[in-house]
Design a protein around this nucleic acid. Structure first.
Lengths: 222, 222, 222, 222
DNA sequence: AATGAATGAGGGTTCATTCAT
DNA sequence: CATGAATGAACCCTCATTCAT
């Protein structure tokens, strides 16, 4: 059960801060509900019940269910993007380091866990018929693909690879997604470390020249 | 608009054949609706309207919406599996030929098109909260993964590769899935041939020993 | 389970006899269904299934559900009436004998059993809003009440009783109905013999002059 | 036509009181509908229409039709039981007075009228296939039977009667029920006073010793 | 800022009935 | 005679939304 949202949980008396906090809590609850019930069974009534508030509160803060769902998806999207951008920023300046950092961040437990993945795929599934979902999901994916491609291009410029940068980027992105799906199914014995190891294995044969650097980065804690 | 299903469409006077035919038609219509409207907006009323029959007919043939959806998903699953199994059977007996044949079949227009992919992902999105969906989707995916792994293992036994069979299989599967998703988004200028070319590019560096064979198979018409 | 109605069960090749036989079987099945499922849950589909025939057969023989139900109720009504009229005809000519015979017949296992009572009350419950049910049920009850009243009047004319014939008749009828209801509930340990004994006990104090005759008749096998 | 339930009918500004009031009104409307239309024709839509509210209100207050019907039946049951228990409490302490009071209460216009009886029998008719109905109806009938039996036993202990207490109780209860049914049919010229007179007539011959008391109580206004 | 009550459109499903075969 | 397929109205119920308090 979720902790009920009572006045005592509210951290500040400042109106807009309170409001922001409440919205965050409701989005959190929405994610939990979608994970447990699926997109189609997630109703405002059930979200309200799980959050321990009345149904009206949700409408008050989000105007409509549509808006709540879109903001929830946007929240997820931001979180994902922030994660790999931060990782990139904290890495060394060379493209190999950045590529490895980004890939590692992809398997960060804070975003790569069954709940979040489940919700993400739920939105994906509906995105064909919901242009807004497509927009939000697509924007993130394009940014991610674009970054991978530019890094692969950079690396390819200084080192010899048998793969075109485009194919290299697609391979890496595809494999990452494929491994993500395995988390969704929840295949027993499928661990984050092993997944990561496999991606690095692939990386090494894509960029054989950088094999050494990649291997070193794969074991470094950062 | 869809062609209406009238008496004239019914191909046979035999009752059980007619019944089977009607079920097929309804499943077809369901796929079209899910593609256009999304899973959540696909109602029996709309399916019936698109099919040009009364709502009762659907219940008569499928008992419930749940059952219709499950049979629709199963239909897709069968189709996919049949496609790559056929391709495998028709290929030469060596694992490289079979692997290439399977990969090619994956991009066969009959299954790799926006409509089918859209529906497939729609079901995937709900699968977390619908054990039956998960069962059906999962069964197919496991079969496919299993086949890829066994072929990669076979190939790895006779030729040297820097990648473990498991990683090789995951890379191939992952990349395929990643490219599929691009069809879903419908990125302009994304063609089947290019996609296929990229997968084969990856294959060649995974199994450099077989590079020649792979390249030959990639351009062969079959 | 009911024995399926197949061609082999049909006793005669004569059309109208066959038809009559089939109708009888369907009414029987209807009674069974109402007993088990209640009036509101008894649908043509379920009756057909229990009878092992297609739904159309029922419509063919009875035109409509309404008509089937009315004929079922009429069947029950006839059966009841026939039962006590026969008993009356077979009894000695004196009113006391006839009264006792009628009362005994009321507890005849062929009509006084949980199934039949259950169905009878089901129709009673709907009779307020179904004039036809009321007509059929009412006609029977009036005939029965009338007979009781006339017998009580006859007896009262020749013997002294502290009860007016009308009250006497009502008491007897009322008590009988009350005991019937106990069969409906199916109170354990409620036996026909005991029920009968109680009614006779009452009879004896209503007509103390005839106490001897009544007692004798209560134990006679006929 | 029924008086529409408008805001003006709501008696209090207190929410929980309002809610209780609305539930009472809806149960009342349900009783009226069952009386007029019968159990099978009483739909939520019709109840809502008669009550002048939207269909959703009923679901909001009662969750389901099943629950509404059960609570309606329970309401009737409570009313009946309260009626004879009150009568018993207000009577003198001796069993004869109490028995007479209870019997009188049975014909109280507030419960013994065509509408209520009609509804009561409608539920009875379905009770075989609805365990909950049986439970509720049965609980009341058992309590009533039990009370009658205990009073008859008490009376029998101090006065001579030719009837066993059990038979006495069954006779009284049976006759009461029989007379109730006459109200259901609505036989013209069937008055409450006459019905009551007949039961008391029976009572006097069941307990001849108490004839005087009974006769006195039968005419007393209380 | 929050609640409970109310709405009304639309959902899946049931079912008596019709009809071609 | 009998069947399976088809219809369409009506049913109960769900749910996003509105609104008075």
């Amino acid at each position: 059960m979720l902790t009920r949202v009572t006045e005592k949980n509210l951290p500040s008396r400042n109106r807009s801060v309170q409001s922001e906090f409440r919205k965050r809590q409701l989005i959190e609850t929405t994610i939990n509900c979608i994970d447990k019930l699926g997109l189609s069974q997630t109703t405002l009534a059930r979200i309200a019940e799980h959050a321990g508030v009345s149904q009206g509160v949700i409408v008050f803060h989000f105007q409509s269910k549509k808006s709540l769902f879109e903001q929830t998806l946007r929240h997820l999207s931001h979180e994902y993007m922030q994660c790999w951008i931060d990782a990139c920023d904290n890495a060394a300046e060379d493209p190999v380091s950045q590529l490895c950092a980004i890939i590692k961040s992809t398997f960060n437990p804070s975003i790569c866990n069954r709940k979040k993945i489940s919700v993400w795929y739920a939105f994906w599934g509906e995105s064909r018929s919901r242009p807004r979902y497509m927009e939000i999901c697509g924007a993130h994916d394009q940014a991610f693909s674009g970054k991978l491609l530019s890094l692969c291009t950079e690396i390819g410029a200084t080192s010899r690879s048998d793969l075109s940068p485009k194919t290299a980027a697609f391979s890496i992105e595809g494999m990452t997604e494929g491994l993500w799906q395995n988390f969704l199914i929840g295949a027993a014995g499928f661990k984050r470390v092993q997944a990561l190891a496999m991606v690095f294995e692939l990386l090494e044969i894509i960029f054989p020249d950088k094999s050494h650097d990649i291997h070193r980065l794969s074991v470094s804690s950062n």
